[in-house]
């Protein structure tokens, strides 16, 4: 199975430097970055689907990772290569030159070029939280889609049984490949992915795998190619325009109330909930 996994770096929520908002945009100077966690789950899912878990070194498929960003985002790709992905593509652009729709259109062109059987994505980015790319991509490709996957079972490489996380429970869908699937947190549970290659007795550790030292060295030699955004999508017009950014308002100090009567009064006149 050939799998394409789009990845993005996001600003690290544990950043020592607080995010600043400048003239109509988020200041990124001095920020530390990490891969979007849901994208890391997508990579882990792709690796589990293309290996025998008892001998993960022998790859039984091909996992290609792609990111959209400037040169320094290659670190995100190299990290994915170090956990086991086979090759990487960087589409040269910047965050403010793309939106979800352009990304989906460019990915469609990339899918036509790379011909994967499956596109696996994180359900959303933890910075923009748009949750659009998987759905748009499936629509543009005319492929079946299954979003918010919490469990995936591969069936003879031709179809996937996907358990989707929805309000109040889960829905099982069978998608015929090629397809687009986006993943949720539970997919990286020990039993999140059942691959036809891995014996059912094998138990994964919860979470994503660590990059082994030897794999980090091997990742230096893996293919990482650069593609121009306009080669994938000559039309680079954006559908989303950001008009401004504001930080959440600082919390105001609370007040201490002495009597019940005062509380009721304030609930009526200030909070206006009574």
């Amino acid at each position: 199975m050939k799998i394409l996994v789009p990845l993005k770096r996001v600003s690290d929520p544990d950043n020592a430097n607080k995010i600043k908002v400048g003239a109509g945009k988020v200041e990124t100077t001095g920020l530390e970055w990490k891969p979007n966690p849901f994208d890391e789950y997508a990579v882990e899912t792709a690796l589990r689907l293309t290996e025998n878990g008892t001998n993960a070194k022998a790859r039984l498929g091909e996992v290609t990772v792609v990111t959209f960003g400037p040169k320094e985002t290659e670190t995100t790709l190299r990290a994915a290569l170090a956990t086991g992905a086979d090759k990487a593509i960087r589409v040269d652009t910047t965050d403010d030159a793309i939106d979800g729709d352009l990304l989906a259109r460019a990915l469609k062109a990339l899918v036509e070029r790379e011909k994967p059987d499956l596109v696996l994505l994180g359900k959303q980015q933890v910075d923009g939280d748009a949750n659009q790319v998987a759905q748009l991509l499936a629509e543009y490709l005319g492929w079946p889609q299954a979003t918010f996957a919490g469990q995936i079972t591969s069936e003879a490489d031709k179809a996937l049984l996907v358990s989707r996380e929805v309000d109040g429970g889960s829905i099982k869908l069978r998608v015929t490949l090629p397809a687009v699937v986006s993943v949720d947190l539970r997919i990286v549970n020990a039993v999140g992915v059942t691959s036809m290659h891995t014996p059912p007795t094998h138990k994964y550790s919860d979470g994503v795998r660590f990059a082994a030292l030897m794999a980090i060295m091997a990742a230096k030699k893996k293919s990482l190619t650069e593609v121009k955004l306009t080669d994938l999508s000559p039309d680079t017009a954006l559908k989303i325009k950001y008009t401004g950014f504001d930080l959440p308002p600082a919390r105001k100090a609370g007040v201490k109330i002495k009597t019940v009567a005062e509380l009721v009064q304030k609930l009526k006149t200030e909070a206006k909930v009574l």
Binding site: T75, R78, A79, A82, G207, F210, A211, A212, L213, I216, M217, A219, K220
Partner: peptide, 18 residues
Amino acid sequence: AEHHELLRKSVRDFARVE
């Protein structure tokens, strides 16, 4: 070097979890 940074992150994650 990039591979040293990747190594640091991987061992840090391993140490935190295991």
